[in-house]
Every structure is written in C-alpha cells, then in structure tokens.
Design a protein around this nucleic acid. Structure first.
Lengths: 108, 108
DNA sequence: CGGGATCCCCGACGATACTG
DNA sequence: CAGTATCGTCGGGGATCCCG
C-alpha cells in the first residue's frame, strides 16, 4: 500500500522523528548521525520523502514540510498505541522499545 | 521499530482492513482470498497479529481482538492522511490508491 | 478447510569508496 | 560537507504441494 510504501522503509519514520525533534533544519550529515544510518539509505529516504512533500530542503538543511508536520500529528496516536501495545500483558520487553521509533528490530 | 515490525509487513494492514470490514469472522481461506495472498504469508501474518493480541481466532474464524479494534481506530486518521496525500498536487495516480490499503505498490 | 514445509528469487539494506 | 556509485548479503515473500 502507498502509505507503507513511504513510511515502511528502513529509516523513514526515524527521519521524520528526528526532524520533528529538531528545532532547526538538519544537514545531511547531522541527519545521518541522528538517525544512525548510512548515506545511501538516508539519501534514498530523503528522496522519497522529499517528493512526497513531507520533507523539504532549504539552504540550511532538511526540515519537515507542512505535509510532514501534519503527518507527525497523525502519527502520534499510533505511536501512543504502540507504546501501550509494547508494554502489554505478559510479554516483557518494553524496555528498549520505549520510543518505538527507530530501526526495525533485527529479527534473530 | 516495533510498530512497523508488526504493521509494516506485507499483508498486515490489509488483513486488519479486511477483518474490520467483515461483520462475521473470516475463515483462513476467506481471508486468503479477501487479502489476495498466499497461505504462507497469510499464516505468518496471522501468527504475528495473533500473538500481538490484535487478532483472535475462535471456532468461527478470525476476527479483530479488542486491541485490534482500537488499532483500527487509531489507524483511520493515518489512512485519511494517506488519501489526501495520494491525491495531492501534481502527481496523478490517486486512482488505484483510493483505499491506500493493500499490497505495497510494486515499484518500477 | 486449516495451515505447515520447501524452494527460489529479487530487492532492500549496509558498507564504503569516491567526486564535486 | 553533500551526495552518488558500486557491490555483496540476507531475508522476506511468492508459489506450490501436501497432509490431517
């Protein structure tokens, strides 16, 4: 589906997240470090996010576009759900997954 | 991330979607056809969704569990965003992506 | 009908070197 | 510093067969 096509990729949400935390635009390298990823993936994601009008690039660096900000808004509840979900009933964990936004847990 | 770990897989959302549309529980085969997928993937997803307490299985078939229903609730806004996004500015499309819930668009 | 077992393949990702 | 190019790998997903 279109939606996951954009957000389901490796660093998409993470990038959104980092940008939403940043007060000022982030440079390519800054983002790279913040998101703990490598140039190729970062570049790929930025490309997609950019022409989805979710992220924009001005002289200073990358920042959320209007679309991106509204997206973050709508994502937050999901995120909240995920937190509740992560720390549900039996299953322990919930420790490292507090933020639930990051790299896809490497499955064994 | 945990969240995408569950929902980012190939038929996860699609399954949720189909189940949320169904009034009665769906059988394995019914789901398989509804979601247009194959046994292996369906089975994999059902397993994950089931032990995430998002989907449950009674004698009649599969249905959303409480968690699942709340998830659908929280997903809906996202879905709405995706629709607006899909039919934004320049880019045409928006035709096949109306529902925006389905298989990951084969890129090429 | 439910669903486990196999097999194969392709594409996403990771690392890293390189250019402007 | 920004971004591109290259290459190898690894795992998820598709198809299918088949058994209880």
């Amino acid at each position: 589906m279109v939606l996951l096509d954009l957000l389901g990729r490796r660093m998409a949400l993470r990038i959104l997240w980092e940008l939403s935390k940043a007060q000022a635009p982030l440079t390519f390298r800054a983002l790279q470090e913040a998101a703990e990823t490598n140039p190729s993936v970062l570049n790929a994601r930025l490309g997609e996010l950019r022409d989805a009008d979710v992220v924009e690039h001005d002289g200073e660096g990358y920042r959320l576009a209007a679309q991106g900000r509204s997206l973050v808004t709508v994502i937050r509840p999901l995120h909240a759900w995920a937190e509740r979900w992560a720390s549900r009933s039996g299953k322990e964990s919930a420790t490292a997954s507090q933020l639930a936004i990051g790299k896809r847990a490497r499955r064994k």
